[in-house]
Amino acid sequence: MTLLKAEAMIAGYGKTRILNECSIAVDRGEIAVIVGPNGAGKSTAMKAIFGMLPLESGSISLDDKNIEKLSPQDRVAQGMAFVPQTSNVFVSLSVEENLEMGGFIREDDINNTRDQIYSLFPILYEKRKQAAGELSGGQRQQVAVGRALMTEPTLLMLDEPTAGVSPLVMDELFDRIIEVRNTGIAVLMVEQNAKQALEIADTGYVLVSGENRFTDTGEALLADTEVRKTFLGG
C-alpha cells in the first residue's frame, strides 16, 4: 500500500542539476530513510517532494493523487507535514502555542490531537507554558515534530531531525519516531547518522549524486557489505 510515490524526479538549482531521476516511495505505517554522502541530494529530494523546489520532470503522488503542481501549503492540506532541519519551532511562542499554530489550518477541534501529542511526548506537556526557544535541542525537535503532527498528516517528513543533538537524545528521538510510525503515520526522513537511522528504517534509500544507488529494507542495507564499506564506514 504505497502512500507516497515520487518517480524519476529531476531537479536542481539554476543550471546545476542535483536530482537525476531519483525515485522515493513510502508505504503507510513505515519509516523510510534517505541516506547518502554529503551532496548526494538528500535534502534536495525532500524539498522537491514537499514542493519547495520545482521539478524539471518526474511525478509525485500522495495517496494516488498527483500533487506535483501543488504549493507546499496545499500539500500540507493534502496530508503532508514537513519538519525543516533548522528554525523549525516558533521560539518566542510557548510549546502549546506552537502546537496550536501547527493546527492553524484546521477548522475542527484540535484539543484531541494536542492531547495525543502530549501523550506521545510527555515532556512537552510538562513544558507547555514555556517558550520553545528556552527548551533544550532534543526537546525543541520534539516540539517541531509535534507541531508538524498537529495537522494529523498521513506522511511526516523530517529533514535531519538528529542534527546537532547528543547520541543519547538521538536514541530517544528515534524511539519517539517509531512511536509516531506505530500510530499509522508514514515517516520519511533524511539522516546523516546513517547506521542508527537504518536500524529503525523499514525502507532505506541510499542516494549518490542524485541517483538511487541502493534500495532495500533497513536491515538488508545494514547487512550489505558494499553499503557498509562505502557509506557506513565499515
Binding site: 501549503q73 500540507v76 514537513f82 528554525s87 516558533f90 518566542s92 511562542l93 496550536e100 492553524f104 489550518i105
Partner: peptide, 22 residues
C-alpha cells in the same frame, strides 16, 4: 486569539508560518 497568535508566529518565523498554513 488565534489570529493574534498567528501574527506572533509570522513575526517569529515566516517560513514556518507559511508551512503551517498561515
Amino acid at each position: 486569539t488565534k489570529t493574534g497568535k498567528s501574527m506572533r508566529a509570522y513575526s517569529d518565523n515566516e517560513d514556518l508560518a507559511l508551512l503551517s498554513g498561515i
